[in-house]
Design a protein around this nucleic acid. Structure first.
Lengths: 197, 197
DNA sequence: GTCTATAAAGGGATAGAC
DNA sequence: GTCTATCCCTTTATAGAC
């Protein structure tokens, strides 16, 4: 029989999830260590048993998010696909992942400015790797004639911004479910690159 | 002969422009009244001769931005255009305006959460009016068969996010100028709605 | 309209008991 | 690993002189 008491068995993970939620909602600068501790149910000073500073806590959240995102993306698109299949897989993955992890995603995209130089450099490299995967798909499709697009780097950024924006408005229980929303974004993406099925 | 001394002739506008720049760069919570005053060259307490609070200063910036944006957009798209012409005009306007006013735009999109309830309601209404203009173009194009899209509301949000994202990366003096970048976004937009010229 | 001075509150981080 | 207590600094906003 499981222990159902709210015992402090994993304070570090609790801190991560509440900090993520609060940072996403109010911004890094808008959240105090007391706010985070209060959400978890401990005192502010106890946070320092798990993270050496507020800045380290933010960096931890962002790096872990980017690592997970990259791993998941690499699992979603397989080598040797046609550019069209790869783009469709990428788009569906990106939109559904962002629908399911809106806080992580929002944080990573918005709070880059709150990160110190070292952390910012790390995150930018990871973000760049992610963006590059999409850019490579577009470049291949352009070379094979499957896609009709302008500059692949600009188009990649445009498509990423489009798909990432789903986090701003999507709410569970709305008129359209995840699947229906993902379908629309995938369709819009494929049309945007001029793909003719 | 004009007076070239850095006299304090328009502190209020100086406060607006420096606050806009600082808020856009570091976020509302990340900027203090001392920071703003320092940028303008006055003491922090003197701000209160022009704005009753930091919150009022933010609301002033956001409302003025949305008013200007709506006016400019309404001037850019004319009635009785075909849906395709209207969409092209809207896209070109949106991208170039956002390239030219990145700080205003970034602020209005990001700092909604820092606004109090009254201000947030005002801004959301203005934003809604703007989004509705694009949605109406898409609806008309869908009805006339000019566009091949899924839900117009979702597509409108997707396209707006795509185009607004240009503020994140565009820098003057890069490989592509405003015009070239706008061309790519306009093309991607027209293709995204399945328009066949 | 700007200044100096200050009030009142809240911020991140540390010390040391348990 | 969490607690209480505290340090030291910054924050928004106000008071009153000039």
């Amino acid at each position: 029989m499981p222990d159902t008491r709210a015992a402090r068995t994993n304070t570090k993970d609790d801190l991560r999830s509440h900090a993520r939620q609060l940072f996403a909602r109010h911004g890094y600068e808008g959240v105090s260590m007391r706010d985070i501790a209060g959400a978890v149910g401990i005192r502010q000073s106890a946070i320092y048993n798990h993270f050496p500073s507020k800045q380290h806590l933010l960096a931890d959240l962002m790096v872990r998010h980017m690592d997970r995102l990259l791993d998941a993306m690499r699992g979603a698109i397989t080598p040797h696909q046609t550019p069209a299949d790869a783009l469709e897989a990428f788009a569906r993955f990106h939109v559904t992942y962002h629908i399911d992890q809106p806080e992580d995603v929002f944080l990573a995209y918005m709070e880059l400015r709150s990160l110190d130089d070292a952390g910012r450099k790390t995150i930018l490299a990871l973000r760049d790797a992610y963006e590059h995967s999409l850019r490579d798909i577009l470049k291949t499709g352009l070379a094979t004639g499957a896609f009709a697009i302008g500059d692949p780097a600009v188009t990649a950024r445009a498509l990423l911004a489009m798909m990432t924006g789903v986090t701003v408005w999507f709410k569970d229980g709305g008129a359209l479910d995840r699947q229906a929303v993902a379908d629309i974004y995938v369709r819009t993406t494929m049309q945007a690159v001029g793909y003719k099925p």
